[in-house]
């Protein structure tokens, strides 16, 4: 299973997950006269992809990686079953470590595994509460990259709807954990990444689906709102194909930029070391160690004992997400908030 077909299903505008009712700011841009035709729309889509598109792609890749690690078999009892539809041929115990994370990488095509190779891995056995808190943290990272409350609300609504649909299409432990962790609905890219992993996609495929939907929804909305020639608009999307690939690649690369260009000051605040937290600089060390080799990380973790192992493992995931892109688009923020004041709107966002 290399996830290609699942990727098509996931990115299809007919996926029944509520996407058709979101214009990604286009309705308000049209109302304000900022988008009046194909030329404006092309610039709108290009800018949207370079900002919100990149951010959602990176979050989706991160979520996919996390979900895959949760689904990956761990030693000992309580091993999660392989994800996938109950009827699928791939059902049954996984064949070896890392299977669920391979996605398309197993046949070695074009580096689909990018972004999955160095993640901090499955939890030390025995504690799902840790995974719940990791999902919350990743969702909080999405919050921190979404200043506009209107956009957070739209992202959570879409995430909630996607999660509802995905849990029936691709039931998995990761999706259940995510639903438990963020009951009000995770940000859409977080849900998308988790769904992608459950469908057998790799992080790069999740990123591509996120980047793709970040422009196709607004493009379709513009066709409906402005009566544009649908082929003209699809030509604009075709022109973005290379940028879409690049965005997905950049999103995954950002996951491996786990060490910010300088250490996070939060790790060494005035408060002093907190109970149960890794000491100052720990996360960066762990990140470096992780870059040096996954196996070595595991060895250290085992030696450090159970509790420290958990903390270190969590810190490694956290460190992986600090530096994810947060490209902001002030105009999109203003459009999203302005949209809420429109008494005659057709789209949710």
């Amino acid at each position: 299973m290399n996830g290609d077909a699942a990727l098509l299903l996931l990115a299809d505008s007919r996926l029944p997950a509520g996407g058709h009712a979101h214009s990604g700011g286009v309705e308000e841009a049209v109302r304000r006269g900022a988008v009046t035709g194909a030329g404006d729309l092309a610039r709108f889509l290009r800018g949207r992809l370079a900002t919100a598109g990149l951010v959602t792609a990176a979050l989706a890749a991160a979520a996919c990686e996390l979900a895959a690690s949760e689904t990956a078999p761990v030693a000992g009892p309580g091993t999660a079953p392989r994800t996938g539809p109950a009827t699928g041929p791939a059902t049954g115990p996984a064949t070896g470590p890392g299977t669920a994370m391979d996605g398309g990488g197993r046949d070695g095509q074009d580096g689909w595994e990018l972004g999955a190779a160095h993640d901090p891995g499955a939890p030390p056995p025995g504690d799902t509460a840790d995974t719940v808190s990791l999902w919350r943290r990743l969702d909080a990272e999405a919050d921190a990259r979404t200043a506009s409350p209107a956009q957070r609300e739209a992202a959570r609504l879409q995430g909630r709807l996607l999660l509802r649909t995905a849990r029936r299409m691709w039931p998995s432990a990761a999706l259940d954990t995510l639903a438990r962790a963020v009951p009000e609905g995770p940000h859409h890219p977080v849900a998308l990444g988790a769904a992608a992993a459950s469908a057998g996609c790799a992080p790069r495929q999740a990123a591509l689906a996120a980047a793709y939907t970040s422009v196709t929804g607004p493009a379709t909305a513009a066709v409906r709102l402005l009566g544009l020639d649908p082929v003209t608009v699809h030509r604009l999307l075709a022109d973005l194909a290379t940028a879409l690939d690049d965005t997905a690649r950049a999103a995954c690369a950002s996951l491996d930029d786990a060490i910010p260009e300088d250490d996070e000051p939060e790790e060494c605040g005035h408060q002093g070391p907190q109970p149960g937290r890794p000491p100052a600089g720990h996360a960066a060390e762990q990140a470096a160690e992780q870059a040096a080799g996954h196996a070595a990380g595991h060895a250290v973790e085992h030696a450090a004992g159970h509790v420290a192992g958990h903390a270190a493992w969590q810190a490694r995931w956290h460190a992986r997400w600090h530096a994810l892109p947060g490209h902001s688009a002030p105009a999109l923020d203003l459009l999203a908030e302005g949209h809420l004041t429109n008494p005659m709107k057709l789209f949710v966002s």
Binding site: R14, L15, P16, A17, G18, G19, H20, A21, H22, S23, L157, R160, L161, L162, R164, T165, A221, R224, L225, K345, L346, F347, V348
Partner: peptide, 21 residues
């Protein structure tokens, strides 16, 4: 109120996620 993005029949038939929610 659920917004339907110009396609009311989609929201009650093809993609009912928002209404279920």
């Amino acid at each position: 109120a659920v917004q339907t993005g110009c396609c009311p029949h989609t929201a009650i038939r093809d993609d009912i996620a928002a209404n279920l929610d």
